[in-house]
Structure formats: structure tokens, C-alpha cells
Amino acid sequence: MDGTRTSLDIEEYSDTEVQKNQVLTLEEWQDKWVNGKTAFHQEQGHQLLKKHLDTFLKGKSGLRVFFPLCGKAVEMKWFADRGHSVVGVEISELGIQEFFTEQNLSYSEEPITEIPGTKVFKSSSGNISLYCCSIFDLPRTNIGKFDMIWDRGALVAINPGDRKCYADTMFSLLGKKFQYLLCVLSYDPTKHPGPPFYVPHAEIERLFGKICNIRCLEKVDAFEERHKSWGIDCLFEKLYLLTEK
């Protein structure tokens, strides 16, 4: 054995408090879109979701699917093309516009009456609605409950000090017999300040354990050449399924 860690023996890093005071403002996230600093976007979609999607959907149609901090995630069109209703929230209007443009979807925009100064973008087909606002303002819009949440790049982007508020927001959107698919990253948080932030299993239990059954479905090596600039040499991604207790 050469000592290389595999996707099945990932350790939890003990120094989980080192990132707790890290803060990125909404304006800084918007600047990332304006300046093209969106390496977190996956042009081909998320491979773990693609692998498990049909198993999760079980042939159902007409589900309501929520994408927190959606950006221009191509997976939104995957669900819409399968007959589901997609709702996303994203602070960057540019990111939302790029989604519709890159997916060749016509759309309209209208003000969100409950949140002055914000807009919702709706596909002409009517099954994709993307709200351009802070996720913490979203419950004011009465958008209803969801059958499924796809959380990739959301919890790991939320400032650590806001995670409890974020989890409570997610709980307010969950319908009966929900499936909450959650991706988190595992790396040494003493070497990279984030975002994306390190979210250990214990944190998921703390945030969601009282209401959800929590199961880790898969762990994969997600390290890429660009991650060397973070000062790390190891990065794993974990896919969790959260269901109603």
C-alpha cells in the first residue's frame, strides 16, 4: 500500500471551527459572476446526480424540485425535460440570464411583489422559475412545498455562521416524503479558508438530524488541478440523501 486515501476511508478533519467566522457578502458573489470567477459551475452537470437520477425519480412526473443557490445549473433542465417543475433561487441576475441563454430557453421576467426590487424569471414553458433574491428572503414569497431539493454548491457556499438559518429555510420548503439530495466537500479547512466551505458529517447531523434521516450514498475523489491553488492536495465530495423521519 502506498498510503493513498480512497473514497471509502475519508477521515473527518478535527479543526472544524477554523472557518466559522468566514463571510462572503452577496455583493462579492455577484462580483464573481461579473468577473467570470465561476469555476464552481459544471458545464456537463453533476455526474453523481446523473448516475442516481432515475433511481431517485422512480419514474414519477410532476414533482416540484428546488435548487438553492442555483446559478446556471444545467441540471435544472434535466428535471424540466422529465416533466418536473423547477424552482431556483440565485442572487446573480447575470447567472440566471446565462442559464436561459445557454439552454436556449425563452423566458419572461416579473417583479417579486413580496420582495421589493427583486425579480423572478420564468421559462415560456412555465416549468422553470428562478427567483433573483437572497435565499433568506425566499420564504416571504409563499412558493409552496417541494418534493425534492438538489443542494450542490449551496450549503458549502453559505457562510458558516448562517447555516442554521439556511437549514431552517430548507425545512420550511420541504413537503411530505421529501428527498433532499446534498453534496458537501471534505478537505483540510486549515489550508483553505473557503468558500466552498468544509462541511463535516457531524455538521450535517447537527443541522438536519432532528428532522431528517441522513444517509451518505457515495464518496468520490473530486480533486482537480485547479484545487492546488487552494493549498490542498486532497478533496473529496460526498452525496447524501436526507429523508423524512
Results as ranks from 00 to 15, higher is better:
Lys37Gln: 09
Trp29Gly: 05
Gln44Lys: 05
Tyr187Val: 03
Val23Phe: 11
Lys219Asn: 06
Leu174Ala: 08
Gly175Arg: 07
Ser85Cys: 14
His84Pro: 01
Glu205Pro: 03
Glu218Trp: 07
Gly62Pro: 04
His41Arg: 06
Gln47Pro: 14
Lys228Tyr: 09
Val87Gly: 03
Arg152Ser: 09
Tyr131Lys: 00
Lys51Asp: 01
Asp168Arg: 09
Glu28Asp: 15
Asp137Gly: 05
Ile214Ser: 04
Arg206Leu: 12
Leu130Trp: 01
Cys234Leu: 13
Phe79Ile: 08
Tyr13Met: 14
Arg226Trp: 12
Leu173Arg: 03
Pro189Val: 07
Phe40Arg: 05
Asp54Leu: 07
Leu8Ser: 11
Phe208Gly: 01
Asn213Cys: 14
Arg140Ala: 07
Phe66Gln: 00
Lys58Ser: 14
Gly161Phe: 08
Ile10Glu: 14
Lys32Trp: 11
Thr169Gly: 10
Arg5Glu: 15
Asp162Ala: 09
Lys20Met: 14
Asp81Lys: 05
Lys51Val: 11
Ser7Ala: 02
His192Pro: 02
Tyr198Glu: 02
Lys77Glu: 03
Phe197Pro: 08
Trp29Cys: 04
Val65Leu: 04
Lys210Leu: 14
Gly45Trp: 06
Ile128Met: 06
Glu28Ile: 05
Gly175Trp: 09
Asp168Ser: 15
Thr16Arg: 11
Tyr180Trp: 09
Leu24Ile: 15
Pro139Ser: 05
His46Asn: 15
Ile158Ser: 02
Gln30Asn: 05
Arg206Lys: 15
Glu203Cys: 08
Lys176Gln: 13
Gly62Phe: 10
Cys132Val: 04
Leu8Phe: 15
Ala202Glu: 15
Phe236Glu: 09
Val65Arg: 00
Asp233Gln: 14
Thr141Ala: 08
Asp54Ile: 03
Cys70Phe: 02
Val18Leu: 12
Asp54Ser: 13
Thr169Phe: 07
Phe208Arg: 00
Asp168Leu: 09
Leu174Pro: 00
Val18Trp: 09
Glu114Ser: 13
Phe223Pro: 03
Pro160Trp: 06
Ile10Tyr: 12
Ile135Ala: 04
Asn213Trp: 03
Lys122Phe: 07
Cys212Ala: 15
Tyr107Val: 06
Val220Pro: 03
His201Ser: 11
Phe171Thr: 14
Gly194Leu: 05
Asn213Val: 13
Leu173Asn: 00
Asp233Ala: 15
Ile158Val: 15
Gln30Glu: 10
Tyr107Ala: 03
Asn35Val: 10
Asp151Leu: 00
Ser134Trp: 03
Gly3Tyr: 07
Glu90Asp: 12
Arg163Val: 03
Lys50Asn: 12
Cys70Arg: 05
Leu130Arg: 01
Phe66Asn: 01
Lys72Glu: 05
Ser92Tyr: 06
Asp2Ser: 08
Val23Trp: 10
Val65Glu: 00
Cys133Asp: 00
Gln103Asn: 15
Leu69Trp: 02
Tyr180Met: 09
Tyr13Trp: 11
Asp147Lys: 01
Val184Met: 04
Val34Asp: 10
Thr16Phe: 13
Cys165Trp: 14
Gly231Val: 05
Thr16Ala: 12
Phe171Met: 02
Met76Gln: 01
Glu225Pro: 10
Tyr131Gly: 00
Glu237Leu: 09
Leu94Asn: 14
Gln97Glu: 02
Lys210Ala: 08
Asn21Glu: 12
Lys51Ser: 10
Val120Ala: 10
Ala222Asp: 04
Ala39Arg: 09
Ala39Glu: 04
Ser108Val: 12
Ser92Thr: 03
Leu24Asp: 04
Arg226Ser: 11
Cys70Ile: 01
Pro196Val: 04
Thr118Ser: 14
Val18Ala: 11
Leu181Ser: 03
Phe67Val: 08
Gln103Gly: 09
Met170Arg: 00
Ile158Arg: 01
Glu75Ala: 03
Ile91Cys: 08
Gln30Asp: 13
Gln22Phe: 10
Ser186Tyr: 13
Lys50Ala: 10
Thr6Asn: 14
Asp162Leu: 10
Leu217Tyr: 14
His41Val: 10
Glu224Ser: 10
Lys228Asn: 04
Ile135Tyr: 14
Trp230Asp: 07
Val184Thr: 15
Pro68Thr: 01
Phe223Lys: 02
Glu102Ser: 11
Leu174Lys: 02
Cys234Pro: 07
Lys245Leu: 09
Leu174Met: 08
Ala202Gln: 08
Ile211Cys: 14
Gln30His: 09
Asp188Val: 02
Cys234Asn: 05
Ile115Met: 12
Val65Trp: 04
Val23Lys: 07
Val65Thr: 02
Glu109Tyr: 14
Leu63Ile: 09
Glu27Ala: 15
His192Thr: 05
Asn142Arg: 10
Thr55Asp: 10
Glu244Val: 05
Arg215Thr: 11
Tyr240Arg: 00
Thr190Gln: 11
Glu114Thr: 09
Leu185Gly: 04
Leu185Glu: 12
Arg215Leu: 15
Glu90Arg: 03
Cys165Pro: 15
Leu155Arg: 01
Pro189Ser: 10
Thr16His: 05
Lys210Arg: 15
Gly231Phe: 02
Pro189Lys: 03
Pro68Cys: 02
Met148Phe: 11
Trp150Met: 08
Asp162Glu: 13
Leu182Thr: 03
Val18Gln: 06
Glu224Cys: 15
Thr4Asn: 14
Phe121Trp: 05
Thr55Tyr: 03
Tyr240Met: 08
Thr113Gly: 11
Gly3Met: 13
Leu181Phe: 13
Val199Met: 03
Met1Gly: 12
Ser229Phe: 13
Ser14Leu: 10
Asp15Pro: 12
Gln22Trp: 03
Glu225Phe: 13
Glu244His: 06
Phe171Ser: 06
Thr169Val: 08
Gly161Tyr: 10
Lys37Val: 12
His227Ile: 10
Ser125Ala: 08
Glu27Leu: 11
Lys58Glu: 14
Ile214Gly: 01
Glu237Trp: 01
Lys60Cys: 13
Met76Trp: 03
Lys219Asp: 04
Val65Met: 02
Gly83Trp: 01
Ile91Ala: 02
Glu205Arg: 11
Asp162Thr: 08
Gln97Thr: 09
His192Glu: 09
Glu244Trp: 08
Tyr107Gln: 00
Met76Glu: 01
Lys72Met: 02
Cys234Met: 15
Gly153Cys: 05
Leu241Asp: 02
Tyr131Cys: 04
Leu239Ser: 06
Lys210Trp: 09
Leu94Trp: 02
Pro111Trp: 06
Glu237Gln: 13
Phe67Thr: 03
Thr55Ser: 12
Asn142Asp: 10
Gln19Val: 05
Arg5Cys: 14
Lys77Pro: 03
Gly59Leu: 10
Arg5Ala: 11
Met1Leu: 14
Gly161Ala: 12
Trp230Met: 07
Phe66Glu: 02
Pro116Arg: 08
Gln22Met: 15
Lys238Gly: 10
Ile158Pro: 00
Ala167Trp: 05
Val18Lys: 02
Gly3Arg: 09
Arg82Trp: 09
Asp9Ser: 05
Phe236Ser: 14
Thr190Glu: 13
Asn159Arg: 07
His52Glu: 13
Ala167His: 01
Glu27Val: 08
Gly36Cys: 14
Asp233Gly: 12
Lys219Val: 14
Leu242Ala: 02
Val89Met: 05
Asp221Ile: 01
Tyr107Thr: 01
Glu43Lys: 08
Gly194Arg: 08
Cys165Asp: 12
Lys191Asp: 13
Phe99Thr: 02
Thr141Tyr: 04
Phe67Gly: 00
Glu102Gly: 07
Gly126Arg: 07
Gln47Val: 15
Leu155Ala: 01
Lys228Ala: 09
Lys72Cys: 03
Ser129Gly: 04
Ile10Ala: 10
Gly62Asn: 15
Leu235Asp: 14
Val199Lys: 02
Ser134Cys: 06
Asn104Pro: 00
Met1Gln: 15
Lys20Thr: 14
Ala222Pro: 10
Asp9Pro: 14
Asp15Ala: 10
Ile143Pro: 06
Gln19Gly: 02
Arg5Pro: 06
Val86Ala: 05
Leu217Ala: 06
Thr169Arg: 09
Val87Glu: 02
Gln30Cys: 13
Glu27Asn: 11
Cys234Val: 15
Glu244Gly: 11
Leu24Thr: 15
His41Asn: 07
Asp147Gln: 03
Lys51Pro: 08
Gly175His: 13
Ala222Met: 14
Arg5Met: 11
Ile204Ala: 00
Lys37Asn: 08
Ile112Gln: 04
Val120Ser: 08
Glu237Gly: 03
Lys219Ser: 15
Gly209Ile: 03
Ile91Glu: 03
Ala73Cys: 12
Glu205Tyr: 01
Lys210Cys: 11
Trp78Ala: 04
Phe121Tyr: 12
Lys51Met: 04
Leu49Glu: 02
Gly209Gln: 15
Asp168Val: 08
His41Leu: 05
Gly231Arg: 10
Arg82Val: 07
Cys183Pro: 01
Asp233Ile: 09
